[in-house]
Design a protein around this nucleic acid. Structure first.
Length: 202
DNA sequence: CCGGGGATTATCT
DNA sequence: GATAATCCCCGGC
């Protein structure tokens, strides 16, 4: 069990990084409690050349400022006015590449996750989908800009490898208005896992 | 199993 | 004022 270091994130191949993150363990320590889950779904957002990416064409605002931070930084923003979406920033400083984490298979701190999401029982809705997993892990936009080499949010490798044939890919979810970029197969997921969100429509 | 629509508000134009 | 990298519920088949 070892924490992913800065070299993992600073590479310039965000699509490879998104695929490699499947099977890794996302860990948060919020309010003194550890919660974690194995990543089963992720999407790559390829910076300035990707119309679905917040940094497309070099667009830079207060919201997406942390996309321009060095690889290994958290970028968290609010979507649809109420959901906090967690991204892993990759590549060099000033390059807005990132990976959106879309689903985890819960491991540690499940009682706390139930409390945070106000659920009674564990089912797939606990940590399936980017909004749900952020709520369960206690991640909010206040955590945007944190270093993933620190203690609040980090990603661990426990050595368990997912065989290539168990990793599927598809178009990304919810980016239909991104023109040509909507067709890129930048979404990766662990086939058959309960915590993978619905398949993209067509 | 699948599609439609409402909730809810930060962010950008 | 419009949009949005979502989620949940409901009704129909």
């Amino acid at each position: 069990m070892k924490k992913l270091g800065i070299k993992f994130y600073e590479r310039d191949q965000v699509i490879d990084i998104a695929r490699e993150l499947i099977g890794k363990i996302l860990v948060t320590k919020v309010d003194g409690v550890c919660t974690s889950g194995r990543i089963v779904e992720a999407e790559a957002y390829q910076g300035v050349i990707d119309r679905a990416c917040h940094g497309f064409g070099g667009r830079r605002t207060a919201r997406n400022e942390h996309m321009y931070a060095p690889g290994g930084t958290a970028y968290v923003y609010i979507c649809y006015g109420m959901h906090h979406l967690f991204n892993v920033v990759t590549n060099k400083p000033e390059v807005p590449d990132a990976v959106l984490i879309r689903g985890i298979d819960p491991l540690e701190g499940i009682t706390t996750m139930l409390k945070r999401t106000r659920k009674k029982l564990v089912d797939r809705t606990l940590t399936r989908g980017p909004g749900n997993l952020s709520r369960a892990l206690g991640i909010t936009k206040l955590n945007s800009g944190l270093k993933l080499t620190g203690n609040t949010i980090c990603i661990m490798d426990d050595g368990k490898m997912i065989p290539q044939h168990e990793i599927g890919c598809s178009k990304r979810i919810g980016v239909e208005s991104a023109g040509e970029a909507a067709n890129y197969c930048y979404r990766f997921y662990h086939k058959g896992n309960l915590f993978v969100s619905a398949s993209p429509s067509k």
